[in-house]
């Protein structure tokens, strides 16, 4: 059996923090009918550089073309394309569950311990449980809490850092600083 060419890719986009950037980025995925599974926007370690983390299912040749087109956006500094082997990643989820039902079951402590979750807030009406981990771990806790009537659930997009010993964005920015010096001369 041949392996499906489709897999989950994580695209990390380093950019300036400009209005409308997300629109431009999502346009490039839309044109190729790629569904964005999740998206996270945050600061990066480089001063003033923002970081968008997007996951999508596709094949590598398509994703390489997407990366090429993303890098053409003027405000985009650098784009990296990764599979799960290249990155350390986490997601965070919150579950809002009725407190009474949880307490009645006497399983609360077991659930929290076995899933490595924690309780953020507990009121007589509801309990907020937080879980960070990979997608399947978050889903496992969801399945486990289902019987207690989950009132609200939310899962964040993926946050990730690469496992490369080299920080490509820093190298790129250093190169650009050299260019800037030359352009000023």
């Amino acid at each position: 059996m041949t392996e499906s060419p489709y897999k989950l890719f994580t695209v990390i986009i380093y950019s300036e923090n400009s209005v409308g950037l997300l629109n431009q980025v999502s346009n490039i995925f839309t044109r190729r009918c790629l569904n964005i599974e999740d998206v996270t926007a945050s600061l990066s370690s480089a001063p003033g550089v923002h970081k968008l983390t997007i996951t999508t299912e596709s094949d590598r040749p398509t994703m390489e073309k997407v990366v090429g087109q993303l890098e053409k956006i003027v405000e985009v500094i650098k784009v990296g394309l990764y599979t799960d082997d290249d990155i350390i990643y986490q997601e965070i989820a919150l579950y809002k569950v009725p407190t009474m039902e949880l307490l009645q079951s006497h399983e609360l402590e077991t659930i929290i311990r076995s899933h490595g979750a924690r309780i953020l807030e507990m009121t007589p009406e509801y309990t907020i449980i937080e879980k960070t981990g990979h997608r399947w771990e978050i889903e496992a806790l969801f399945d486990c809490l289902k019987r207690y009537d989950i009132r609200q659930f939310v899962r964040s997009g993926r946050v990730c850092v690469t496992n490369s010993p080299v920080e490509h964005i820093d190298l790129f920015l250093e190169k650009q600083r050299q260019r800037q010096k030359q352009s000023e001369q």
């Binding site: 985009v76 500094i77 650009q176 000023e184």
Partner: peptide, 8 residues
């Protein structure tokens, strides 16, 4: 302008 950080 002859330099933009994000554009080469």
């Amino acid at each position: 302008v002859n330099f933009i950080r994000s554009y080469n």
